[in-house]
Amino acid sequence: MSERTIELEVLRYRPEQDQEPFFQTYKVPCEEEWVVLDALNYVKEEMDRTLSYRWSCHMFVCGSCGMMIDGEPKLACKAFLKDYPTGKIRVEPLSNFPIERDLVVVLDDFVEKLESVKPYIIPKEERTVEQGEYLQTPAQLKAFKQYTLCINCLCCYAVCPQYGLDESFVGPAALALAHRYNMDSRDLGRAARDDVVAAAEGIWHCSFVGACSQVCPKDVDPAGAIQQAKFAHGIDYLTSFLPGGKR
């Protein structure tokens, strides 16, 4: 295993003593197969215990270590150092979120939005345990499976200019999850979600920049989910004019 030293420029912010964030550079001896998270862990363990950042699984499952790496929102556990040949890497907290401390951002706004779209199955029929499971065909599963892969890493929010300019926007991940449940054959909760999803701050606030889908580490394609939801609501609106249509 070969070693090389990289310069890790980390945006620091310690609320009890700093008025604003500043960059601090660490020279980190790294091994070839390391990811940015390994370098941060090295700093934390060997160089500077005051550095704060979130992480948990180290295998792109938990979604905790989303951060800006050279200006691009990424999972620090999926950003391999060998992909940064200059040896200089700038690490910042996710854009569009307030900084709590160092690389830790305030997530309260997202959590509220996530709750508001009711991201759980609202069943068509209540079944008792004795009645057995809700059945679903592989084709019905395929209709929404892609949107179940979201790990709430918030890379999509960090790159969404609509959310950055106006945080009333419900945003990509929450809307993609709403779409995931709306597309589920076992679910009948679309009307209950529409107060949030079909509002001006919901799907109609998205202007399809598409950046969310470009950066999503799990290929969820939130932009696609939002456009499909717009299409479904457009069809609803038009068919409401037909005889027997609901208005």
Binding site: P15, V159, P161, A211, Q214
Partner: peptide, 24 residues
Amino acid sequence: PRKPYVRPISKTSWFMTQSRYKVY
């Protein structure tokens, strides 16, 4: 002790910050 720091975003030139925004 909490004092979250909000980074400013330019309302008029945000699209110059990334090439994908320029394409958009």
